[in-house]
Design a protein around this nucleic acid. Structure first.
Lengths: 208, 208
DNA sequence: CATATTTTGTGAAATATTTCACTAAACAAT
DNA sequence: ATTGTTTAGTGAAATATTTCACAAAATATG
């Protein structure tokens, strides 16, 4: 199985390529990409070789072609539907976040436990959590986003898993437990900050 | 230098330990922690050994002591001040996010380019971006959070770096370039979703 | 057209990370 | 006390990841 870091790099390459394309760049070399993404050129070539992406010796890679190949590997050829559970700060921000559409993900509904937050007329309608299960199965939702407090997160994951969601993005600051029918990616803001502080301190120590 | 994954695991151990503590657990073994965090028991022990954390053979580790040791390593013994640049969806969500306080980080101000968003009276006041530099130096801000669109992100980072910020949490979906006076952690929501989709597809392929 | 240069693709080497497996310490039981 | 059991600590082994270095292909140059 291919490591997560490798897949993350592919995404970064693709991002960088979009920028190069915007600047009118047509042909690119491994070292240009490497610099843009902060890795070595052989890392870039090795990553590509793993997925059978090939360029031309002395000719580099065609930006357009490479983008398509990466899109293909990263699997965004059909639009996927997602729901958010939790209409708090983070949940609401994600409902209005435009970056997901660009990536082929549409957020079609949100769910919360608090009736004051219900709003079936909104752009992204907010329903009661009791509707989650039927909504997911009726609308063939593949992706769930968890934006509830830590205590409720495991329960929400179980609901989603049971309803047939295939992948979950979890914003609750807790390690969730899932069987291997479902993929869970954690985005833990507190952990990221803590991590940042560690490296700030480490870098201060190094300079002494 | 110690790998990022290792530091991330330390944070996860600490999180798990808080939960155990809440349940009244006093003494814990490497395999309990391992299970909670989804790693092997020897990974736990190896991680601890790197940082000179030791327990008792057959007696495991004292939950309270372990939490303190981890807090110490992760460096959260003094409250740090942070500012947010960008008062859009993500920026506003982060201003109201209560999880940071718990981790010893206080968000003291936000900055935006749009005068409609200015609000010096708010709980977290929102100023014009032109005030960023002086605010950071006058208030000895160590942490910056970038929540602006991708095109503006590099510029904001440069401003922060120049003003003396030590670490940055970047939410803009772009690879930023910084010299090594400053630590940058990226949280790229689009990339995480893309990554999730890759693994959903990969897991579907495996099952065929 | 021949030669020089550049850049890919990739095994092999070097590093880094994780797991294994065993020793010894701590505690429990008899 | 002695014996048995559990679990930390840790070198060594196994894996995984990254970098090196060079042959071969593509293009440029004279």
């Amino acid at each position: 199985m291919i490591g997560r870091n490798c897949i993350v790099r592919l995404s970064r390459y693709k991002n960088a390529l979009y920028q190069f394309k915007k600047l009118g760049v047509v042909k690119i070399f491994s070292d240009n990409l490497a610099e843009a993404v902060n890795v070595t050129a052989s890392q870039v070539r090795k990553d590509f070789s793993i997925f059978g992406i090939s360029g031309n010796k002395r000719g580099g890679y065609q930006v357009e072609v490479l983008i398509e190949q990466l899109k293909d590997i990263l699997g965004k050829n059909e639009v996927q539907k997602a729901v958010i559970v939790g209409a708090g700060n983070i949940g609401r921000a994600l409902m209005n976040y435009t970056g997901f559409e660009k990536e082929g993900i549409t957020i079609v509904a949100a769910f919360d436990i608090d009736p004051h937050k219900f709003n079936e007329q909104a752009n992204v309608p907010i329903f009661g959590i009791d509707k989650l299960n039927s909504f997911i199965s009726n609308n063939k939702i593949t992706i769930g986003i968890i934006a509830v407090p830590a205590v409720a997160a495991q329960q929400v994951l179980d609901l989603m898993e049971h309803a047939g969601v295939k992948g979950v993005l979890n914003f609750a600051p807790i390690s969730l437990r899932a069987n291997n029918n479902i993929v869970v990616n954690n985005i833990n803001l507190e952990l990221e900050l803590e991590n940042l502080i560690y490296y700030i301190n480490a870098s201060a120590r190094t300079k002494e």
